[in-house]
Simulated assay, not measured.
Amino acid sequence: MDQQAVTAGAPNESRAEVADQVVAILAKMVRRSPDSLERSTRLFEDLELDSTSALELLILIEDGIGVEFDEDTLEPEHFETVASLIAYVLEQLG
Results as ranks from 00 to 15, higher is better:
2 D>V: 08
3 Q>I: 14
3 Q>C: 07
4 Q>T: 15
5 A>H: 14
5 A>K: 15
6 V>L: 14
7 T>F: 08
8 A>L: 15
9 G>P: 04
10 A>D: 08
10 A>Y: 12
12 N>G: 12
13 E>A: 14
14 S>G: 10
14 S>E: 15
15 R>E: 06
15 R>H: 11
18 V>D: 01
20 D>G: 15
22 V>Q: 06
23 V>G: 03
24 A>K: 13
24 A>Q: 14
26 L>G: 00
28 K>W: 07
28 K>N: 15
30 V>P: 01
34 P>E: 11
34 P>Q: 13
37 L>C: 11
37 L>Q: 05
39 R>T: 11
39 R>P: 12
40 S>I: 03
40 S>Y: 05
41 T>D: 03
42 R>K: 15
44 F>W: 06
46 D>E: 04
47 L>I: 05
50 D>Q: 10
50 D>I: 04
50 D>V: 04
52 T>R: 14
53 S>M: 12
54 A>H: 01
57 L>H: 02
61 I>L: 06
61 I>F: 00
62 E>K: 03
62 E>S: 08
63 D>H: 07
63 D>C: 01
69 F>H: 07
69 F>C: 01
70 D>G: 02
71 E>R: 07
72 D>N: 12
75 E>G: 05
77 E>F: 12
80 E>D: 12
80 E>A: 14
80 E>H: 13
81 T>L: 00
81 T>S: 11
81 T>D: 02
82 V>I: 05
82 V>K: 00
82 V>F: 01
83 A>W: 03
86 I>Q: 12
87 A>D: 13
88 Y>C: 01
89 V>E: 00
90 L>M: 05
91 E>F: 09
92 Q>N: 06
92 Q>M: 10
93 L>N: 00
93 L>M: 08
93 L>W: 00
93 L>D: 00
94 G>E: 04
94 G>H: 03
